[in-house]
Amino acid sequence: MFLLNYTLYLADNALLLGHRNSEWCGHGPVLEQDIAITNISLDLIGQARNFYQYAALLKNDGSTEDTFAYTRDIREFKNCLLTELPNGDWGQTILRQFLFSNYQYLLYEQLQHGHDQQLAAIAAKALKEVTYHLRWSSEWVIRLGDGTEESHRRMEQAIAEIWSYTGELFIPASYELEANANGIAPDLKTLEVSWLQKVNEIFTAASLSAFAKATADKVYMHKGGKQGNHTEYMGYILAELQFMQRAYPGAEW
């Protein structure tokens, strides 16, 4: 059971962030970056499909990748709150992508050597793409943070806006603890140290100070997504994502 839940956790993170990023399609600040964010979206939804397909195999009750994505209710989704937050401005989207890609990179790096063969294969495959996401988003955090007065102000504002949603990434749910005990998933405490190091490195290069303030203040961290307790934004996402399958069950195109 923990393996199914852990697989769904990985899938839901990828699906939700992929969906959020896809909202930029046709609205990006410049064409090349519109294409970049939607490419990242495609990679993430591809990852979600691989994880859901594996989850369907594990569950073995007729569930498919589609039923997981389109017919589960809000409380069954295990994604971190960070992935479901609204996009905000371009700076906030970039920042969220950096914070999450940094997490995903470190996570998959370990997962690919874990004891579950299929999760390891999906992670090894996706890691190549996540490397691009992390490099791209890191460069943009630096460019915007160290850019104009306005871009700098907006990046500081974005950190203030979403930093309190990052703590959850490293607070293990029961299925993560079990996956770790079984040699499948990494220990989140160790992961957090490397993650913070990278954040510090990039924020320093970007002349962003809000991070230092946020950690010094020990801001309150929101949590609950991993257990299915979501923000008020989640219902709206599912309404859009699931409408077709709910209105016309089994519809194909």
């Binding site: 090349e32 970056q33 294409i35 970049a36 490419n39 990242i40 495609l42 990679d43 793409e129 691009y132 490099r135 791209w136």
Partner: peptide
């Protein structure tokens, strides 16, 4: 290089 993401996942511009 104009962008490392192109018209399909496998290409850069």
């Amino acid at each position: 290089r104009i962008s490392e993401f192109g018209s399909t996942a496998c290409k850069a511009l």
